[in-house]
């Protein structure tokens, strides 16, 4: 009985606070008098998710969608990496620099402004939230690389990707640039040697921090969206024809 009560309380916690305040006692009463079957738990979970989505901010929804897209791309990259130049894989790797992503941030800034009519700061913060959520898989990858759990293979334009069977839990990083890096050598007197290579894997700390370094730029794109929203709001309030005709009349005469 105690477990049942605990489970009902836990299920109710999944609903938004405002909803819980309004309907929580009724739903609790209903769940307490019947056995919690898998069907009922699933039904309540689905309903709680729906209520959460209804009250969620646009930035949370877009951010969570981006997180899922990135996570999906990350998993597919490990399980079945595509050849160098594959559009989806290149887009996911260079997401933060893509025009599509910038448009998404501007769009979310605009959406947030039109919804709340708030300050530009609010639109900027919405874009920052999206970038942070989208960056979670990359930060996680950085941590796994740092811990030595996730390996990295650098794939150049002419290289063939390896299969999961061959590389195991390894991320395929697409890179065509020749860069300087340090490699470990077997010579006891020199432990690290500088080389120029296309096969330099990205540093774990760099991977971990790279999403955070994009946050200020995201803020700017979101604020720009907010500015656009403000401009749209003003032009809606002021009818275009009636505001311009009186100004043009003296010239016409």
């Amino acid at each position: 009985m105690k477990t049942h009560h605990w489970m009902v309380t836990a299920l109710l916690r999944l609903y938004p606070t405002a909803w819980r305040r309004e309907y929580g006692p009724e739903l609790t009463g209903m769940l307490l008098v019947r056995p919690l079957t898998a069907g009922i738990v699933g039904d309540v979970l689905r309903s709680a998710l729906w209520q959460r989505l209804r009250v969620a901010e646009p930035s949370t929804l877009v951010g969570l969608a981006m997180l899922l897209v990135m996570l999906n791309g990350f998993v597919w990259n490990i399980v079945a990496p595509s050849p160098y130049g594959g559009e989806a894989s290149m887009l996911l790797q260079n997401l933060w620099g893509s025009n599509l992503y910038v448009l998404l941030l501007v769009g979310c800034g605009l959406w947030t402004h039109l919804r709340h009519r708030g300050k530009l700061d609010q639109s900027g913060l919405a874009a920052v939230k999206i970038s942070f959520l989208a960056g979670i898989p990359l930060m996680l990858a950085g941590i796994l690389m740092w811990l030595g759990i996730l390996g990295v293979i650098v794939l150049g334009p002419r290289d063939t990707p390896t299969t999961f069977h061959e590389h195991g839990f390894t991320y395929t990083y697409y890179d065509a640039q020749i860069r300087s890096c340090w490699i470990r050598v077997s010579e006891p007197t020199i432990q690290l040697q500088a080389i120029q290579s296309t096969t330099c894997p990205p540093a774990p700390l760099g991977v971990m921090l790279s999403p955070l370094s994009r946050l200020p730029a995201s803020w700017l794109w979101g604020a720009l969206g907010g500015l656009l929203g403000r401009w749209i709001g003003r032009s809606r309030r002021r009818p275009l024809v009636t505001s311009w005709i009186p100004r043009l009349l003296p010239y016409w005469r």
């Binding site: 009724e26 769940l31 069907g39 689905r46 309903s47 729906w50």
Partner: peptide, 8 residues
């Protein structure tokens, strides 16, 4: 109707 569906 499930309790979740009902209250939604």
């Amino acid at each position: 109707l499930g309790p979740g569906t009902l209250y939604t």
